[in-house]
């Protein structure tokens, strides 16, 4: 099976004198797999996510995503790669408050040069799929947390990414909204979307992921296949 993510001895140090925040780590994630990354605060979860997303570069080792070594790419190439192959959903949504829901979702598509009409069609399709079409012309500030996270997921998926990264996607949500997002991720996984989910929530990890790794002090303390997806 094709590997979407391959980390080869990837390590990240923020302080050259201190211990690495992450790794060295060797890890691969196959296409269609849903990987949950858990661990206590400071264990390296966000660092791992940043390396995979190309938001940060490893100090050692290699990071290969969708068959491309991204740690050696220029900033421009990384940005282009990211918008074409990676979708991201964040704990605090990171929506642009002065753009409507539709414009937020369309933005990554428009950055790739997709026409306004095609981007609008894709955004409409995703809003329909995620049940937020009634908020198309609303601004994020008027939506509930769960609705905002759905918008963030829609934005992440607009360019049909090979990989969806979700960083504590339920961390800022109430229980009911959290369940909505969990169901959404589950549906996406069932549809074959490769997902890396960083979370403190073991229940979410158990529910959504086909595989879970547990990080402690930057190293994989546990790598086990989760129960079969329900």
């Amino acid at each position: 099976m094709r590997q979407v993510i391959e980390l080869e001895g990837a390590a990240k140090r923020y302080d050259s004198a201190g211990a690495p925040a992450l790794g060295p780590l060797t890890l691969s994630v196959a296409e269609g797999e849903a990987l949950a990354v858990t661990g206590p605060s400071g264990s390296g979860k966000s660092t791992l996510l940043n390396l995979v997303a190309g938001l940060d570069r490893p100090t050692d080792g290699a990071v290969i995503v969708a068959g491309r070594r991204i740690d050696r790419m220029s900033e421009h190439a990384l940005a282009t790669f990211r918008r074409e192959h990676i979708g991201m959903a964040f704990q605090f949504f990171n929506l642009l408050d002065d753009l409507t829901v539709t414009d937020n979702i369309q933005l990554p598509a428009r950055l790739t040069g997709t026409s306004r009409r095609e981007a609008a069609a894709r955004a409409g399709e995703l809003m329909e799929m995620l049940g937020i079409h009634q908020h198309a012309r609303a601004y994020p500030g008027r939506l509930s947390g769960g609705e905002r996270q759905r918008v963030a997921v829609a934005r992440a998926l607009v360019n049909w990414p090979a990989l969806l990264l979700a960083d504590e996607p339920t961390g800022a949500l109430d229980t009911a909204s959290g369940h909505d997002v969990r169901d959404l991720l589950l549906d996406l996984h069932r549809a074959g979307q490769t997902i890396v989910l960083v979370t403190h929530d073991l229940a979410l990890a158990e529910a959504c992921a086909s595989r879970r790794i547990h990080l402690v002090d930057g190293h994989v303390a546990l790598d086990s296949r989760a129960q079969a997806v329900r």
């Binding site: 997303a53 938001l55 900033e75 421009h76 940005a79 282009t80 990211r82 918008r83 074409e84 991201m88 964040f90 990171n94 929506l95 642009l96 933005l107 990554p108 950055l111 790739t112 934005r155 992440a156 360019n159």
Partner: peptide, 16 residues
């Protein structure tokens, strides 16, 4: 800067 970070995270290049 945060909004610009978001834009960059979703694929806005340095030139853009």
């Amino acid at each position: 800067i945060h909004d610009l970070g978001v834009c960059k995270a979703i694929g806005m290049s340095p030139g853009q």
